[in-house]
Structures are given as C-alpha cells and as structure tokens.
C-alpha cells in the first residue's frame, strides 16, 4: 500500500523538473560535479569487483567443465558472455545502488532537513531541476560507461586468473573471447545499464528529496532507497532478459 502511494509521489516528482535553467553555467557546473562524483567516484570499487568477478568466473567455469571433449576456448566464451550479460551490468549496478544511491539519498536528505533546499527555493531556484535532474543525467551517462569499463576489466580478470592458475593460456583465452562474439549482447547489457542507471539515481533522489524529520529519518530513507532500488533493479533485469533475449 505504502509503495503504491510512493510510486504516485515518485511520478509527481518529475512534474516541474524540466524547466529552463536559471543559469546554464551553474547547471552545467552541477552536472559536471555529479558526473565526477558518480563516475570517477565509483571507478575504484567497480575496478575491484569487476576484476574479481571475472577471475572467479574463470575458475568456477573451469571447475564445472571437466570433460576433455570440450575445448578450453569454451571457458573464455562462457566467462565473456556471463560477464557481459549479467555480471558487469547487474552486479556492478547492485553495488552502485549502494554506493551512489545512498550518497544521493543522504545528500538530498541532509539538504532537505537542514533547510538548504528551502534556501535554494527562496532564491527562486527550481530545486528539482537543479538538484535532481543533474544527478539522473550524470547517472545515465556515467553508469553505462562504468559498465563498459566493468566488462573489459571483468574479462581481463578472467584472463589473468586463467593464466595465473595455469587453467587456460592467455593466447587460448583471447581466441575464445573473440570466437562467436555477439555484439547484440553488449547492446542488451547497455540497455540494461541505462535502465539501472535511472533506477539507481532517481529512486534515491526521490527518497532523499522528500525526507521529513531529522538525522534518523535520513538514515532510514537512504536504507529504503537502496533496498527499493535493488529490488526494482533485479525485477527490471528479469523483465529485460525476458523481452530482449
């Protein structure tokens, strides 16, 4: 029941968000700041998880494929496809929901509770346009880029692990990665990451922007934002896989 009411409010949030900026330069500055926060700010964690996920999937795939009939290149193919289709977009975005989402929710929540949003409104600034929109746009641009980075690093991590553990030679891995490569998979993954990027930024922005109360409520709102974003992200993952594969 609560979630339905929240959904209604969420839709209403977009009402009045798309207005001419009071000052283009300031909006651009805000947008670049968000791009930096979301993109550069999350690069470290994305690097770490992508490399490890790729590495682990090489080891596990090799463990499951013990038959001598199956060529080793298959391992590389499986790693490539699972990284591109699922691990890079979905797992990275779940992590980003935590990292970026909680930051957005608590930042806006703090601004609301300490009346900074009111202060902007008083000056005659459209706070939805100035505070929320740049975050969503920055997410829509930076998160798919992060996912591309994640794909590359994931596959590289798989190659590295295969090489280090002696399971599969780098040259064989490379051959496998290029074998029967479907560009459509990348398109699918990028479509997913656009949808996820929207969920990761818009939902926490909503919970943060409309916080009522004090510090305690900011914490609650940010937790709720991350939980709702993650659940919807997985739901969207299922729906998109159903529709597009």
């Amino acid at each position: 029941m609560k979630i339905i009411k929240e959904f209604g409010q969420f839709i209403k949030m977009f009402n009045g968000m798309f207005r001419t900026p009071e000052n283009r330069k300031m909006y651009w500055k805000q947008f670049m700041l968000q791009c930096n926060d979301i993109g550069i700010g999350s690069l470290g964690i994305i690097t770490i998880i992508s490399v490890f996920i790729g590495a682990v999937s090489t080891l596990q795939t090799a463990y499951q494929l013990v038959s001598p009939i199956i060529p080793k290149t298959t391992i590389a193919q499986i790693v490539r496809d699972s990284v591109i289709l699922e691990f890079a977009p979905t797992l990275s975005c779940i992590v980003l929901a935590g990292v970026v989402g909680s930051k957005i929710a608590s930042e806006l929540g703090n601004m609301r509770v300490s009346e900074q949003i009111d202060a902007l409104e008083i000056m005659g600034i459209n706070t939805k346009a100035y505070l929320i929109l740049p975050k969503i746009l920055a997410g829509l641009i930076m998160i798919p880029l992060l996912i591309i980075v994640s794909m590359v690093l994931g596959i590289w991590g798989g190659r590295l692990a295969g090489n280090l553990s002696g399971i599969i030679d780098a040259s064989i891995f490379d051959k496998g990665v290029l074998m029967d490569f479907l560009p459509y998979n990348v398109i699918f993954a990028l479509t997913k990451s656009f949808v996820f990027a929207f969920l990761i930024t818009a939902i926490p922005a909503f919970y943060g922007y409309y916080v009522k109360g004090g510090a305690l409520e900011i914490g609650k709102a940010s937790t709720r934002a991350v939980v709702v974003a993650c659940v919807l992200l997985l739901l969207a993952d299922y729906v998109l896989s159903f529709l597009m594969l």
Binding site: S114, E115, Q116, D118, A119, G124
Partner: peptide, 20 residues
C-alpha cells in the same frame, strides 16, 4: 513574476541552511 519577487527576498533560516 513569482521568481522576480523571490529575487527580492532574502531569508535567514533557523539552522542557517548554509550549503555544506
């Protein structure tokens, strides 16, 4: 017109509301 009036308004908030 509202925006124009807003530009003529200054407000000091209870908790100062400075941008952190």
């Amino acid at each position: 017109q509202k925006k124009n009036i807003r530009k003529e308004i200054g407000m000091l908030f209870q908790g100062s509301a400075l941008f952190d």
